[in-house]
Amino acid sequence: MFRATRQFFTSVALSLFALSVLAEGNSLLNVSYDVSRDFYKDYNPVFQRHWKTVSGESIELKQSHAGSSKQVRAVADGLEADVVTMNQASDVDFLAEKGLVARDYARKFPNNASPYTSTMVFIVRKGNPKALKDWGDLVRPGVQIILPHPKNTGNGRYTYLAAWGYALNQPGGNERAAQDFVGRLLKNAPLFAAGGRDATTTFMQRKMGDVLVSFESEAELIAREFGKGEFEVVYPSVSILSEFPVAIVDKVVDRKGTRKLAQAYLDYLWSPPGQETAAQNYLRPRNPETLKKYATQFPAIRTFTVDEVFGGWAKAFPAHFKDGGSFDQIYQQK
């Protein structure tokens, strides 16, 4: 009995050890948010080829995708991510607070450590029957708007802040007016979808709502691939710039000895091939030349950043999305 137990534990320990040896050095785990799946599926082979020519090594790249804050909690709880690639700074901030990521992670890479950006745009049905041109049109009575949960999802939060920033920008705009505006906008939502893709399904397949607000990357995917010819993308007069920060998880790479590889993996996102891959996935490249090359795909749009209007995610998050924040206040006024 005891011998059997000991044998069992020994074999478990041995196989774990073997696994960890295999995993060391020549493999990376990239823990990412949900819809980046498509991008990294394309980017990883590009980097693997690059690394092979540079160093001659074959490497293994593993991906993990789920809701971003769920992913970050998993990393904080011990998921051995070498790098994290997120869709919102507040998620990486959490890892910085826990000491897993450098506090100044945003300055370790160019462009606020965000290799590509996106923005929030409207997707409407063909011909734009309700003539929805700008954020102001979305609060008209009788307009139905589909969006993911504004408090619980990154996608929904960007939409919320985009509408808020638009209202602030209007003549006589102030915090009070902005909250009132966003409140009216949310009243036009018949539901809050569980996530970005769920909102897309609800709008496209279940044919609910007059307008879907989502990332430009998602919108282009819908208009060009999923529902070709049935939908149109509308660019509002102004929108928010969503940044997608990447970071090295210091604690993990130092222990596994993968720092060099992790650094190269993230650096290469800014290389022309990396930027092209982003553009092909409808993510706005930072490199001006790549952007110019794909100019037809990315119409010029006036954007503001979370840092400019809200003083950064560290301030925006508690003010709007924590319990008792502006979102909750909207639903307490009733």
């Binding site: 804050s69 909690r73 408090k151 319990d323």
Partner: peptide, 9 residues
């Protein structure tokens, strides 16, 4: 509950 976890609460 999930909403609280999203706020790391």
């Amino acid at each position: 509950i999930i909403s609280k976890l999203e706020q790391y609460d």
